[in-house]
Structures are given as structure tokens and as C-alpha cells.
């Protein structure tokens, strides 16, 4: 269990003055993740919002050592850093304790970086990969990714006269990571800081690779007023759109059980990207989204109940 007082004493783990949008939720995620570790960290990031807004030369918001090399290879790059650490340590050339974290957006993780991520997880590097999942290519201007939900209006799946936004459902990357049989996989949300910090601590404590998929409401791409990011994140959890759970050595556990499962329409209503779904002719899409959420949630409940 994380202690907010203790966490706040860590000071600014990310320097202020970065250029993320007002109301962006990734800086909150970043703070939660970085503050969770008592061990020094070396971090890396895929090309994306997080990288471009925190490392504008000659400034950097990173207080930990940080590397960005390209878009599709945050996992491979950090796996190389971790390999260097292992090698130097084994040779007696380095004596510090360090943990390694790679960050990537959903584009850099679900899509172009999937191979690199899968490879790094299979190789068993001692690293945590955090996907800050805002469900589209936000840095390039809101294009659909395989994390974009059904019906979402993006610039490459626009809601038009004959097409009601994205025609396909989200890929379940968290389950793909579970299928890698790595010691720790979880879903997190910045609205539940305690849950998130605890998960990061667990992830960093395991011997081997860990993956946390964090839902990141994007005020620009999801189109909401900047003050509502955390509220929307909370509703993603309460509607079971983004269940908070973890899979430790293959064992499922729901870490935040919604007191009352809220209807998905309430969540969708708050984001302009779903506005067109509320036209009468698109009612069926909302029903489909609800049905998919229910099916996935029920499956998750069963897995958690069975403890498998």
C-alpha cells in the first residue's frame, strides 16, 4: 500500500515546465510511476507525446537518466541498457542497483512497437514496460491505432456520412502480454493513484519483465475540457471499460472492484470523439460497445474467481 505523504516527499520526479497540453494526464501517470520506485531508475521512451514534450533541447524534464531512440523500439532500446547493466555488473565494473522502465504510447506499443515489445518480454529482461494508452496516435494528430475503441472518431477513422467512426474493436494488448507468461501484467489508471503506485512497485520487484497498460485520457484527442481527465479516467474504471486488474505469475486479481458498474453511455457522452454515436441511427454501436465490455468483464471476473 502506497503512502501519499511519503510519495509527496520525493519532490518533483519530473521537472515542471514540460510542454504537455494543459489537462494532459500523462505527466500524472509519469509522476505516479517514477515516485513509486525507491531504487534509482533509468528510463526510456518511444517517440510520442511524452518524449517530444519532455525533452525539447536544451531542456529536459527528466531527472532520471533517459533515452529516446525511435518510435517502434523503446522495449529493444531499454533491453540493451539493461543488458549493459547486467554485463558491467557481472564483470565487477558497476556496483549500483538500478531498475529500468520503458514508456510508449499505444501507437508505439500496440502497433509499430509490438514486435520489439514482444521480443523484449520473451527474452526476460529485468524491465518494466509502461504503455500510456490514449487510444490513438495523438502526437501526429489523432489517427486511429489498434487501441482505438469501436466507433471512435479519429482523423483516419472519421465519423462521416456513411461511416460512424472506427469500424473495429480495440485489440486486447494486456491479454497478449499475459500470453507471454511474464511474471507481472496489469492495467492501471491515473485516477487510482494508490492502485497504480502499488502495481508499479510490484512490477519493479519481480525478477524479469513486467508490463502495465495505463489508460490515459487525452484532452485533445478524446476532446474534453482540461479539468475532466481524472473524472473520465475514473469512469473508465467504474464502467469496466478499463478494469483495474493484475496477473501475477498467471494468476488474475481484480484490484479495484467497481461499487456499481456504470453504463458505458455515460462514459462515452463525456468525449467528443463519441458524439456521433448518440445519433439514433448509431444506437446499435453503443449497444455493441456495452456488450463487448460486459463480455470481457464477465470473462475477467471468472478468471479472477477461479484464480487462474
Amino acid at each position: 500500500m502506497a503512502n501519499l505523504k511519503e510519495l509527496s516527499k520525493k519532490g518533483n520526479v519530473v521537472a515542471p515546465g514540460h510542454r504537455a497540453c494543459a489537462g494532459c494526464t500523462f505527466p500524472i501517470i509519469l509522476k505516479q510511476v517514477l515516485a513509486a520506485s525507491d531504487t534509482p531508475l533509468v528510463c526510456g521512451s518511444a517517440t510520442g507525446c511524452m518524449e517530444v514534450t519532455t525533452t525539447i533541447f536544451p531542456f529536459t524534464a527528466w531527472k532520471t537518466p533517459f533515452i529516446h531512440s525511435a518510435f517502434e523500439n523503446a522495449a529493444a532500446t531499454i533491453s540493451g541498457v539493461e543488458a549493459a547493466y547486467k554485463s558491467l555488473k557481472r564483470q565487477g565494473k558497476y556496483d549500483k542497483e538500478v531498475k529500468f522502465i520503458a514508456f510508449g504510447g499505444d501507437g508505439g506499443t500496440y502497433d509499430i512497437g509490438l514486435q520489439s515489445l514482444s521480443g523484449a518480454m520473451e527474452r526476460g529482461h529485468n524491465m518494466l514496460y509502461v504503455c500510456y494508452n490514449n487510444e490513438a496516435y495523438m502526437n501526429t494528430g489523432i489517427q486511429r491505432s489498434s487501441a482505438t475503441p469501436l466507433g471512435a472518431d479519429t482523423t483516419t477513422s472519421p465519423a462521416g456520412k456513411v461511416k460512424p467512426g472506427k469500424g473495429q474493436s480495440r485489440k486486447d494488448l494486456t491479454e497478449i502480454m499475459v500470453a507471454h507468461n511474464i511474471p507481472y501484467v496489469a492495467q492501471g489508471s491515473p485516477s487510482h493513484w494508490n492502485d497504480m503506485v502499488t502495481k508499479v512497485q510490484k512490477a519493479l520487484a519481480v525478477d524479469g519483465p513486467a508490463f502495465i497498460n495505463v489508460l490515459m485520457p487525452c484532452r485533445l484527442g478524446w476532446a474534453f475540457q482540461p479539468q475532466y481527465g481524472m473524472q473520465i479516467a475514473r469512469e473508465a474504471v467504474s464502467s469496466c471499460y478499463w478494469p483495474l486488474y493484475e496477473v501475477v505469475d498467471g494468476e488474475y486479481k481484480i484490484t479495484v472492484m467497481p461499487k456499481e458498474k456504470t453504463p458505458i453511455a455515460e462514459f462515452l457522452k463525456k468525449e467528443t470523439k463519441f458524439r456521433h454515436l448518440f445519433k439514433p441511427e448509431n444506437a446499435e454501436i453503443i449497444e455493441r460497445i456495452q456488450a463487448e465490455i460486459d463480455a470481457r468483464w464477465n470473462k475477467l471476473l471468472k478468471r479472477a474467481e477461479l484464480g487462474c
Partner: peptide
Amino acid sequence: SATIGACAAG
């Protein structure tokens, strides 16, 4: 990419 990471690590 891994070689770059390793080399940048020192």
C-alpha cells in the same frame, strides 16, 4: 536498437 541502448548505457 539494443546496441544503441547498451552503448548509451556506457
